[in-house]
C-alpha cells in the first residue's frame, strides 16, 4: 500500500548529475516549434454573437476556443461530442448556416453572426425529430457517442443529394443524383461509428428520405 499522496513537493534526489551522464536525452518540447518570447499583438479573447438553436447568445471566448468547446463548455450544450478534436471522426458535426461542419476544426471567433444548430435544437427526448426517431427505431447506434454527429450528418446528406452536390460515388456528374445506398454510405463516411451501427444508420436514413419525398 502506497502512502497517501503528499502534495508538498517531494522532489527526488536523483535529479542531480544524471542528465550529463545520459547517453541520450530528449527534451519533450524539443520537437515543437521553439517558444517565442514575443506575445500576441492584440487581445487574446473576443466577443462573438451566435444564434444557437434559434437563440442569440453572446460569448466572450479565448480566441483559441473551438466552436465545439464553445458549445460544450460555454453553453453547456454537450450533445455535440468530442471524439478526436482533429477532424478525424465526425462526432462533433453540427450545422452552421445550414451546412454541416466539424465544429472541432472551427474557432468560435470565426462564427460571429452565424446560425448554429446542435442536436439539442433538433428534438428532445419527448419530441424527437423524424431522423432521431428513425435512429431509435432502427437501432442506429449502440454506445451513443457518435450518434448526435451521425444524425446531424444524416439530415444534411439527404439535402446535399437533393441539392445535386456530387460525391465520390456519383456516376454521371451532370445528371440528377439518386438517393442510393452507395451515395448515403459514401456521404456518411465522415462519421465514424466504432460500434459498427452503419447498416442500421443506413436503414434509418433511407426511411427518412423515403418519407420526406
Amino acid at each position: 500500500m502506497s502512502p497517501p499522496i503528499d502534495f508538498s513537493l517531494r522532489r527526488r534526489t536523483l535529479l542531480a548529475g544524471t542528465a550529463a551522464a545520459a547517453a541520450f536525452s530528449a527534451v519533450n518540447r524539443g520537437g515543437a516549434a521553439a517558444q517565442s518570447s514575443a506575445a500576441p499583438a492584440g487581445p487574446e479573447t473576443s466577443t462573438v454573437t451566435l444564434t444557437v438553436n434559434g437563440e442569440p447568445r453572446e460569448l466572450t471566448v479565448d480566441n483559441r476556443t473551438t466552436l465545439l468547446d464553445a458549445l460544450r463548455e460555454h453553453l453547456k450544450l454537450t450533445g455535440t461530442k468530442k471524439g478526436c478534436d482533429h477532424g478525424q471522426c465526425g462526432a462533433c458535426t453540427c450545422t452552421v448556416n445550414g451546412e454541416r461542419i466539424n465544429s472541432c476544426l472551427s474557432l468560435a471567433v470565426m462564427h460571429d453572426g452565424d446560425e448554429v444548430e446542435t442536436i439539442e435544437g433538433i428534438g428532445q427526448p419527448e419530441n424527437l425529430d423524424p431522423m432521431q426517431a428513425a435512429f431509435v427505431e432502427h437501432d442506429g447506434f449502440q454506445c451513443g457517442y457518435c450518434t448526435p454527429g451521425q444524425i446531424q450528418s444524416a439530415r444534411k446528406v439527404i439535402e446535399e443529394i437533393r441539392a445535386g452536390i456530387p460525391s465520390h460515388v456519383t456516376g454521371d456528374l451532370t445528371a440528377e443524383i439518386a438517393i442510393t445506398d452507395a451515395e448515403i454510405r459514401e456521404r456518411m463516411s465522415g462519421n465514424i461509428c466504432r460500434c459498427g451501427a452503419y447498416a442500421n444508420i443506413l436503414a434509418a436514413i433511407t426511411q427518412v428520405a423515403e418519407e420526406s419525398v
Binding site: G90, S153, S189, N191
Partner: peptide
C-alpha cells in the same frame, strides 16, 4: 470534381 469528392468528407469539404 472527381478529385475533390475523393478527398476528406462532406463536413470537411464544406469548410
Amino acid at each position: 470534381t472527381r478529385a475533390i469528392a475523393a478527398g476528406a468528407t462532406g463536413q470537411l469539404r464544406n469548410k
